[in-house]
Computed example of a mutant assay.
Amino acid sequence: MKYHPTLRLATPALLGVAALLASCSSPPPEPPRAAAPAPAPAAPAARVAPPQVASSPQMVIKSSNAQDPRAYRKDAAQHIYAKNSERIWKGRMPPLLYAVGVLQVEVDGQGQVRNLSWMRAPKHAPEVIAEIEKTVKAAAPYPAPARMGKVVYTDTWLWHKSGRFQLDTLTEGQD
């Protein structure tokens, strides 16, 4: 095969120009990468809980080994705190509280609330009475009183005007 004479001369020149252009160009863009997955949210701090007995795969019922209502009151207060952690007043409460109420709660053998009875209702704040009753009922099921079958316990609710509260059983005190 014979090449045309001008092709012989042009070939080295074209190769030189191609090499020069290749050295000046930027590298081809990288293909787009998939966005990095967002970091998983931090897990909430673990809470120490009393022994648990599973009744179904979806529901866990805690049990209480308390032998009397006074001991059960602490288990119930911890349960309410766990269910309402964002509503608990942190630290010592201020000297003037919006409301103080003393409530008696009857809990059956499965941890369900059967009766509420006010021993000292904050009658000047009916909205607080309603909110405390709603909070107590919403926290069910409570730890089942395994040793007593059922229990009636009493606790004092210390209520701040912000809607946050402490229970006397777990209070951090008052200024």
Score class of each variant (00 low, 15 high):
K2C: 06
Y3A: 04
H4I: 02
L9N: 01
L9T: 06
A10P: 04
P12S: 08
A13V: 09
L14H: 06
L14P: 14
L14T: 14
G16P: 03
V17D: 01
V17F: 13
A18Y: 12
L20E: 09
L21Q: 11
A22K: 04
A22R: 07
C24Q: 13
S26Y: 02
E30K: 05
P31Y: 00
R33E: 13
A34P: 10
A34N: 08
A35F: 10
A36V: 07
P39A: 14
P39V: 07
P41V: 04
P41N: 10
P41S: 10
A42H: 00
A46E: 13
A49F: 11
A54S: 11
S55C: 08
S56G: 14
S56K: 10
Q58S: 05
K62T: 11
S63F: 14
A66G: 00
P69C: 03
P69E: 04
P69H: 06
P69T: 00
Y72N: 01
Y72G: 01
R73D: 12
R73I: 00
D75S: 14
A76P: 04
A76W: 04
A76K: 09
H79V: 07
I80D: 11
K83T: 02
K83H: 13
N84P: 08
N84V: 01
E86L: 02
E86M: 08
R87K: 13
I88S: 07
K90V: 15
K90R: 10
G91D: 07
G91W: 06
P94I: 01
P94V: 10
L96G: 09
L96M: 13
L96F: 13
A99T: 08
G101S: 06
L103F: 02
L103D: 14
L103S: 11
Q104L: 03
V105L: 10
E106I: 02
E106L: 07
V107P: 03
G109C: 06
G109L: 08
G111A: 10
V113S: 02
S117A: 12
W118M: 12
K123E: 15
K123N: 08
E127L: 07
E127K: 10
V128P: 03
V128I: 13
I129S: 05
A130E: 09
A130T: 12
E131Q: 08
I132P: 02
T135N: 05
V136C: 01
V136R: 12
K137F: 00
A138E: 14
A139F: 02
Y142T: 15
Y142P: 03
P143S: 14
A144V: 05
P145K: 08
P145Y: 15
M148Q: 09
G149S: 05
V152A: 10
V152I: 15
V152T: 15
D155T: 13
D155I: 04
T156S: 11
L158A: 04
W159D: 09
S162G: 09
G163S: 11
R164C: 12
Q166G: 02
D168V: 00
T171P: 05
T171I: 00
E172F: 01
E172H: 09
E172C: 07
G173Q: 00
Q174L: 12
Q174P: 05
D175K: 12
